[in-house]
Design a protein around this nucleic acid. Sequence first.
DNA 1: ACGCACTCCGTAAACGTTTACGACTGTAGG
DNA 2: CCTACAGTCGTAAACGTTTACGGAGTGCGT
Lengths: 352, 352
Amino acid sequence: MKGIRQLAEQLNISIGTVSRALNGKPDVNQETRRRVLAAAEELGYVANQSGRSLRQGETKVIGLMIESSMEAVENADNFFLGVTSGLQSVFACHKLDLIMLPCPSDEDPHEYLKRMVARRIVDAMIISNTQRFDRRIDLLSRAKIPFVAVGRSLSPGNFPWIDLDFEGVAERAVDRLVARGHRRIAITAPSSDVNLGHVFLESYRRALARHGIAFDPSLVIRVKSSEQGGYQAAHELLLLEERPTAVILIYELMAIGLYRRLMESGVMPGRDLAVIGFRDAPRARFLNPSLSCFRMSLYDLGVALGQTLLAHVPAYRAFYPEGGRNIVWPLELVPGESDAFEIATAKRSSSG
Amino acid sequence: MKGIRQLAEQLNISIGTVSRALNGKPDVNQETRRRVLAAAEELGYVANQSGRSLRQGETKVIGLMIESSMEAVENADNFFLGVTSGLQSVFACHKLDLIMLPCPSDEDPHEYLKRMVARRIVDAMIISNTQRFDRRIDLLSRAKIPFVAVGRSLSPGNFPWIDLDFEGVAERAVDRLVARGHRRIAITAPSSDVNLGHVFLESYRRALARHGIAFDPSLVIRVKSSEQGGYQAAHELLLLEERPTAVILIYELMAIGLYRRLMESGVMPGRDLAVIGFRDAPRARFLNPSLSCFRMSLYDLGVALGQTLLAHVPAYRAFYPEGGRNIVWPLELVPGESDAFEIATAKRSSSG
DNA sequence: ACGCACTCCGTAAACGTTTACGACTGTAGG
DNA sequence: CCTACAGTCGTAAACGTTTACGGAGTGCGT
């Protein structure tokens, strides 16, 4: 099957009519439409996307940019696949297709995005891993490509985003730990160019202040959000003169390294040190003691991302009157064994 | 920047010359080319992909089809992201781009692929999750779209594939366990429409036979390759009259459920029951006792996939004279604690 | 008989590129 | 001076669609 012309020829109809029939335009006879659809089905005809999008200036494809560096692979695990499902359930309503655009690890994400945008291979984009100052946001705004970012940014100008509620996570983690009698609570944070780390840390400080606990900079451990980072974090914690009784991890993968280093020194997580993590409860269950952690439904997040995005695409805006608002995505705590103990303090009588 | 026409106009050159200059065609003056490239860079001009691919009938894009069903998400973890890196390192040499095509969970993979192929959005495809009889292979062969499959299939006709060496895994697992004195070795297998399971099981039988151990069908546990499947597998194992002393898991994620069920009954993995798994050592380290498992470099696998694919694309065949061969990809064993004990048997003196 | 509205369909022009072809130089060889 | 040729470049035709426009036919009211 070469193209619409062969199909028209076969049916003794003009290509214009065939096109109209296939695209559901009103001015075509019922019977003619039936014949066209039948023939198309039989011959397996599907419109060539290049021709179509050349003509109408849109591709009906939404791009999800992801990073495929080794480090990103380690960390992302099933995050993107998870949101993909949700995204597709939204896009399917509008016959939009989703493709994932993996930025090569040796290419600058900004350059990569520029290339993809300029080639006009997608109508809209979802970007993630937002940096504190992210030039991609400028790029997309300037090019007038609708987009939504997962993660806020400090780049100037308003733009659509959905961000995970790190503030809530840090606050609730601190609250939970303080309620169990902890006063010295350590926290891990990534390098500060990722906006996430900044927000996370700020609300940790606020929560401490709320409980009248002084902020101790030595309890902020700056390591990579990886297994190795967790190992190193534990190492640094053990070196502190006055050891913390609890630690908040920004990423649950770190727990594996953390546990290992702790056990090497005979410190038992869940008994000698409380641990709370973030993201992906399934993986948290691999651990022993199981990790208390904050998680979310990736599917639901995908749905929200899709709706927010389409609310900013002129052609679909009408379908999502409420969808334009930025969302701080709530996380739910899945309690595990890693912080299931209480500390006896001066202010608080032991409950065990 | 609208298009090549504006660029030509700006330079007082015909669009033909501009196109030739940008595409490195020989018949264009050095100075002219310099000017064109400079102007394109400055104005941020990049050729519209639709126009280009419409004209030349190729898109310079390779598609990697993945499945985004919830189950697939659970299982795939970072497999695709991992191979993506390797693929891109190959494709980058030829200025080819890779996109991932996630098949929606509610769409038939065959139909989805048909749509994507017919739209001519990609020049070649990588498919995975090959079924024992997979219509996608017919489809791609018939449409003359170059492709490579990760996983063999029994579909008729030769086609390029790379398969993981499940035969070797099953054999070496059995060998290793037998060497430690095990005689009753259970194995898990997925439903039989996935070709993988069939191959896996066959070589398990062969390996047993080689050691003179009778095949016992009750030791083949057919469960889903998931955490829940692992739980159920353990449950079934515990019900057997004559309990096995070892079990081979086809997917390491099952280990978490297996461990849990075992411990509920006071059976200690790594002491009372040997466990060997497959795929993804990082995750295996989450477990306690750590899981012995067979793993591979996803990056290297990606490179091999890329080369095999391009060896079957006419335009690039010349670069990969050796690349046409199908590969049975070897796995390496990463020993853990889960099978680090020996069994005293009649034929074998205890070594502890 | 005429005009009008309505339904259906064909025609042809776009969309942005690439590329075959030929035209125009200037130069060298006869 | 004529021819051949290499180096440049412009022209225009494709590629496969969609869609604005208009035409043909029909039915209906006047």
